[in-house]
Amino acid sequence: MNAMTMPAPERLLDVKGLSIEIDTRRGPATIVDGINLHVNKGETLGIVGESGCGKSLTMLSLMRLLPNKIKVKSGTANFAGRDLLTMSKSELRKVRGGQVGFVFQDPMTSLNPVMRIGDQICEPLIYHKNMKRSDARIRATELLRLVGIPSPAERLDAFPHELSGGMRQRVMIAIGLACDPELLIADEPTTALDVTIQAQIVDLVKELRVKLGMSVVWITHDLALIAGLVDRVAVLYAGTVVEDAPVEELFARPSHPYTRGLLASIPKLSDVAANRLSSIGGTPPEPGRRPQGCPFAPRCQLAEDICRQSVPPLEPLGGSGPHRVACFVAQRQLEAA
């Protein structure tokens, strides 16, 4: 299985050792702890993890959009050869919306309520592509058609409140795609939608990424939803990557106890192995109260003494290959096998 001797694919985004802190009354608390992530050219990466594990903050920090009081403490984020975290503001503005498109979690509040959606789509085109407004409107119509909005030319003049949630999410995707980004970051773009619409949006992005040849980062807490969309999955727990593997590999051989718990909570995958672990009890650690060793140890049924003393590093399972996991027990089990 470690016959991966092809030349290493080119990395579009490479995040190393990213830590994020929040200022609290009791001093700084770590929210994201030394995350390593990468996205290859043309690849779709899924990021999963339960609510509050730092998925959104990680992505916002890459675009330097963190809210007040939340800061990047350390790390680098290399995008197409430059560090997003240290580049100049004017360079960053060209990346934002130009090379990197962002689709936000909540379609109800992420569109400007007093601006026609046509104008909102035109805004990045005028700014990044120096288009005239009339040309931008033509392109906006094409984009709306691309994301499957019926009678797009009429919709240009609609206000967000005149569209349904699913339509608004499509508009957000159209805005994210406006300038032909190399990377599209979609932060749980379907949580606010009902199930059939969710599937439609996933299919839409699946189709578009092939058509447009872009890389995608898709954040979700619903592994089943994106199983057919992503190439690779990074599982986040309490601000660290605990497992990172190609998607088939992850479903076939989930190795971190947390990943197995996540998979077990998907009904249709409840095979014998997964049933044993049922759903995960307990709650993730609060920022500022992280356990000393493995962050998952307090909830882990397999925890041993070493887990409470040192942090398991994210290392390739069996010494090499693309399947990496941060768990002492999983690594040892494989050695034993």
Binding site: L65, P67, V95, T109, L111
Partner: peptide
């Protein structure tokens, strides 16, 4: 602190445009 302002910043728009076209019209 509303999401659409973060969204506007994620589009690379300048502070001036965000103030004039996103903030002020919503305060009006």
């Amino acid at each position: 602190s509303r999401p659409y302002i973060t969204a506007a910043r994620a589009l690379g728009l300048t502070t001036r445009i965000i103030l004039l076209r996103y903030v002020v019209p919503n305060a009006v």
